[in-house]
Every structure is written in structure tokens, then in C-alpha cells.
Design a protein around this nucleic acid. Structure first.
Ligand SMILES: [Zn+2]
Ligand SMILES: [Zn+2]
Ligand SMILES: [Zn+2]
Ligand SMILES: [Zn+2]
Lengths: 146, 146
DNA sequence: GTTAGTTATGAGGATGATTCTCAACAATCT
DNA sequence: AGATTGTTGAGAATCATCCTCATAACTAAC
């Protein structure tokens, strides 16, 4: 967990007048160390010293600050990962069976073409576009063997 | 609400040994008449004769049958719309402020390029891809005036 | 068209993820 | 240090969603 990650997180929090406390630093560390989006029970497993209510509150704060992103799913729990601004722009593979999520990126040319097409379509509908979300929905390798 | 829509819905239900009852027909009618994805409170507003518990149960049945699709959101309620198989493949514009959702389609060339790129990327990750979801996240026209 | 068997309904209750409350605690400033 | 303001966490509250079960509707023989 590199220091500049924590520095950047602290900066973003300061921008919305929030402190970078121990609990929040721990959350960023857990998410950075995981490599894939985690549900809150998974976060608590990885650091049992954290209090459930604080984890909910702090992930919401970190989301507002733009440090983490919440991924909503059909399954029971939402999942969290570090915001794209701390990594590269990416998308998700979602398993309909077990709910697991992993990351992928598109070839630059496809991403580019997609982005300009989306920009145009949003403007035409009166929307001010901010970002986009793209998920491939399917069955993960593990769930195919059953 | 064209008859062939109801016929197709009935057929899909029959395939999973479910009946196309009055309540289910009413749900399909409401969703077909709306033109945009609706939350369950919105469905109940539009047809107050429906029972809340039956709406939840029947939308789940219709989802299993492939007649409706559930759209999960950051906001309080999920939303439902008729499945793509009853209309054309499309995507969503999502307002981060009020949660409203509207539909759009991509130019065929972009959609095509995207689809083949996704297929390739999913296979490489061991996934059996089923479909994809693409949302533009931003601010709707109404919410920009405030 | 009656009967027996199966499936759907709906009102109210249960579940459970998330959010709220509030008293104790920690950081920041003068 | 004292005063002010932000944070924590254990438990309670909320509320979208799902479940229960007695009743009603449908279906398929007889
Ligand atoms: Zn899986
Ligand atoms: Zn993208
Ligand atoms: Zn809006
Ligand atoms: Zn598409």
C-alpha cells in the first residue's frame, strides 16, 4: 500500500472537510490490497478490528470524496473498490451465479469510439454525462463446473 | 398494449410452467405503457389494485421467464422494464441526482464493435458471457436546473 | 360441471442490509 | 489546558424485499 495512494486519499477527503482517520486508512488499505471489488462482509473478514457501522459510514464518506466506488449488484451486498482515479478506467465481469466481480479493460480504440458515441447520445437526451459503466454479465470459470 | 406482446409473455411463462394471470398481465401492461423503467412504488401508483407482495413475487416470476428485466440502482428501489427480447437491445441514461432512468441505443457500428470486443475479453477471463449492461451516468435535464 | 389436485393471491409478518442515534472519544485551534 | 468540532461504535431503527399460510382461482380428469 504505497504512501502516495494514502496521500491522494487524504487530499480528496480534505477537499470535502473530512479527516483521513485510522479506520478510513484501513479501508483504503484493504481495498488496495484486494485487487477486486469487495462486499462489506468481505472487508470485515479481512480486518475484523473494524466496526460494521463505521465501515458503512466511512465507505459512504470515501465514496463522496471520490476515493472509492460502489458497485451495485443483484446479489445481497454491494461491493466497493478504489475509484478509477486511483487506477485506470476499467469495466466489470459479473457472475450471475455467485456474484463475484472482476475487472477488465477494453482495447483503447474501442473505448475511445464508445466514449465519443456515448457523449453524443447523452447530450442529445439533455443529459450532462459524467462517466459510464459497462459490465459483462455471465458465468465465471468456477461456476461453470457444476 | 398489443395482443402479441401478451401472447409472447404467456408463451414465456408457459415454458417455465407458470400461468399468465391477471396480475401478471397487468404488470406487463403497466411496464409496456410506461416507456421507461419503473420502480415498484411507481407500478403501484399506476395500478393501485395490485397487491405489493404479489407485485414483488410476480416481477420475480416474470424476470425468471425472461419477460422483464430488473435494473439495480444506487437509489432506494430497483426498477423494472420489459425484457430486451420484447424490444430492441438498448442501454440506460442514469441520473445520479434523482435516480431516473431513460433508454437509448448506440449506433449499430459501435454496438457491433463493442460486442465483439467484450466477447473476446470475457472468454480470455474464463467467463461464459451472456449479455452486457452499459449505463451513462450523469445529470438529467431537470436536475441541471437547480 | 363436479371433484380433486395444483397453482396463485394478498394481508400481514419476518428478514436483513443499511442507516441512524447518541454518548464517549479524538483531533484541532486559541 | 479549555473549547470546539469531527469521529467512533454498539445497539436501535428503517424499510425494501421476501416469506407464510389461509383463501381463491385455475386445470384436468371423471
Ligand atoms: Zn461465479
Ligand atoms: Zn469505458
Ligand atoms: Zn435527475
Ligand atoms: Zn449494447
Amino acid at each position: 500500500m504505497p504512501d502516495d495512494l494514502h496521500d491522494a486519499a487524504a487530499l480528496r477527503l480534505r477537499r470535502i472537510s473530512q479527516r483521513y482517520t485510522g479506520g478510513r486508512r484501513a479501508l483504503v488499505g484493504v481495498l488496495a490490497g484486494s485487487g477486486r471489488p469487495l462486499s462489506i462482509p468481505e472487508v470485515l473478514e479481512r480486518d475484523p478490528s473494524l466496526a460494521e457501522s463505521s465501515v458503512y459510514r466511512n465507505l459512504a464518506v470515501l465514496e463522496q470524496a471520490g476515493v472509492v466506488a460502489r458497485i451495485v449488484t443483484n446479489h445481497d451486498h454491494n461491493r466497493y473498490e478504489l475509484s478509477e482515479r486511483f487506477g485506470e478506467h476499467h469495466h466489470h465481469l459479473v457472475c450471475t451465479n455467485c456474484g463475484e466481480i472482476s475487472d477488465f479493460t477494453l482495447p483503447a480504440a474501442v473505448e475511445q469510439a464508445l466514449d465519443t458515441a456515448l457523449e453524443r447520445v447523452a447530450r442529445r437526451a439533455g443529459y450532462r454525462p459524467d462517466t459510464h459503466r459497462l459490465d459483462v454479465v455471465g458465468t465465471c470459470a468456477t461456476c461453470q463446473h457444476e
